[in-house]
Design a protein around this nucleic acid. Structure first.
Lengths: 344, 344
DNA sequence: TTGAAAGCGATACCAG
DNA sequence: CTGGTATCGCTTTCAA
């Protein structure tokens, strides 16, 4: 970065102290209670029109903004939904989802707080989260034990929702069925006549939570058949892909499930650069159904997971908040399905 | 989503009320003050070791977690850095950056709050943000006026940083030089002998803030030359790209700056599907230097913007918070540079 | 219709 | 070394 000398005249004006409702009351010539009634449109109390006007006028004049912390301290609860940042760098599919979710929760009048849990893990993290007294916590992936859930509940969280491949005792669960994804992908390859199959296993740490169940599903799909399955470790960079492609003669693989569309693109590129014809020599299928896949040549086959919309999850959270006594529900995210294009 | 009947025994146990420091004090047989001293390791006061132990023991036993809102109410300030979600769906480059930034701020002990500003705009939004009494606000893109900055400052924000193509009075600015990007890209095409140039202008609303300065820079690069520049409206979907590609004979364009790598990929695909050779018939250059571009064939030329690291911005914020009196600084993000690959 | 006052939870001063 | 207590800003009874 290059700093540019600032030409504007003076520095910021002296910080006047932050106006409170008492200041508004003083200026309007009423009590703090009245200010509160007027600004919150309290229906239980009727305030005369002239008074309302004076209060509003005073508030505007002072640039008064209520203090959320004070309010929620008094109220005894917040509208904060805590959304810890996932430990692993996840794909664009997830970013998209989070963005949706945030919008949907906002529309239900919740405030989404992203918490970058740098360093902390498991139940330590839960304690840090609990300090914010969130009304709900949405935990992506694992990394929280039953004890962590208890801490959050004890600190007033009315809903804890976990989002990932594993169930979590005491919490609502949105179970992403990664096992089924692996099963679908490999079954697709098998049905199309492939016998020597490969499955990409990302080397990036943290992704095992997803890759392990996908691998398990893949194995299950081949049980009792004459097809074989080889694990193909792959880091997300070109050299790694080239190295893998170079091993193709030795491996003699005719079909690959590439973990997701991004790894699929990487691998497909390396194979093609090495003279492999896709899908004739080797079929490739990804997962996640990114826009990307349609732009590749051949167009990339993929497994799409019917991920819930942000609105759906937001409503689940809202229901759980309204009825915290209800037993934790487990939802299985809707079926996955193969999207067959040209690469397989 | 499909709900799965829950087999686990009972619903959650009755909510015991949230333990406070008073509860800890009572259990430990000391005063609340002592609890506070012990748990915060206050160095100004010496507490006997047995007492410390009793307090810690009691806190653990009750599962006590301090209340962040109460603390910051008392303290008169928070460690919240507010990061409003950008109004426009931005690319993966930005998501990456945000993620970095969040980590870096977390390491400096700030809490990042993402605020989905659904519906609100400009100074209304600023008022909503001010309710959280953030110590700093990082505003992506425009959408905030000088009045909004004033509201935030008045409510106690010690630093307001804006991040985008435009300067903002009263706020620190990280000025992204989009004009230079357009200039660099088009200059590159011109120097390589292209004369009938095109520039992609995304039809997606909200992207004008970026596309306008890029267009201006492109025009500037051609001033006084014999080259021409045609605006090419393009929506981010395949039909739109196909339609644009179909007009190529009429347009007779031999070089395109495609706004960014994602639009470039889309357009390149459509052109290639239509039999256009790249770069022989038409050169294409993108921007943002996504990993994506290296995987295309031909490899995509691009303009890279030396975007600051999350750590750098976090430190800028931290400096501004420590010294709020300082005049707003404007940083120009480091030079952009053409990354010449095969598509141009 | 309005005002006085209690209290949410944590902290820091001042006495003891 | 430890305990009382005022205070942060706001909401909400209860009285007037």
């Amino acid at each position: 970065m290059v700093q540019i000398p600032n030409t504007s005249a003076a520095s910021t004006p002296a910080q006047r102290s932050v106006p409170t409702s008492a200041d508004v009351a003083r200026l309007a010539g009423v009590s703090r209670a009245t200010v509160s009634y007027v600004l919150n449109n309290t229906s239980a109390v009727r305030i005369s029109e002239p008074t309302r006007r004076r209060v509003h006028q005073a508030a505007k004049e002072l640039g008064y903004v209520p203090h959320a912390a004070a309010r929620s301290l008094r109220a005894g609860h917040s509208r904060i939904v805590l959304l810890p940042a996932p430990a692993v760098p996840v794909g664009s599919l997830y970013s998209q989802f989070i963005s949706d979710l945030q919008g949907a929760l906002g529309r239900l009048d919740y405030t989404v707080v992203h918490y970058g849990t740098a360093g902390l893990r498991g139940d330590d993290a839960a304690r840090a989260w609990a300090e914010l007294r969130p009304v709900a916590v949405i935990v992506p992936g694992p990394g929280l034990g039953a004890e962590g859930v208890a801490v959050l509940k004890r600190s007033g969280a009315r809903a804890v929702v976990t989002l990932g491949p594993e169930r979590l005792e005491g919490a609502h669960t949105l179970l992403m069925d990664h096992e089924a994804i692996g099963h679908r992908a490999v079954e697709h390859l098998r049905v199309r006549g492939r016998r020597r199959l490969g499955i990409v296993v990302p080397e990036e740490p943290g992704l095992e939570i997803f890759s392990r169940p996908r691998l398990a599903g893949a194995r299950r799909a081949l049980r009792g058949t004459d097809a074989t399955l080889t694990e193909l470790p792959l880091a997300y960079d070109e050299e790694s892909a080239a190295r893998l492609a170079a091993r193709r003669r030795e491996l003699r693989i005719d079909g690959v499930f590439a973990f997701n569309d991004e790894y699929a693109m990487l691998l497909m590129r390396a194979l093609q650069d090495d003279g492999v014809r896709i899908p004739e020599d080797t079929a490739v299928i990804g997962a996640d159904d990114l826009t990307l896949g349609r732009l590749l040549r051949p167009r990339l086959s993929t497994v799409r997971l019917e991920v819930p919309s942000g609105r759906e999850l937001a409503e689940l959270v809202d229901r759980a908040v309204r009825d915290p006594g209800a037993a934790p529900e487990t939802y299985r995210v809707l079926d996955s399905a193969v999207v067959h294009r040209e690469s397989s």
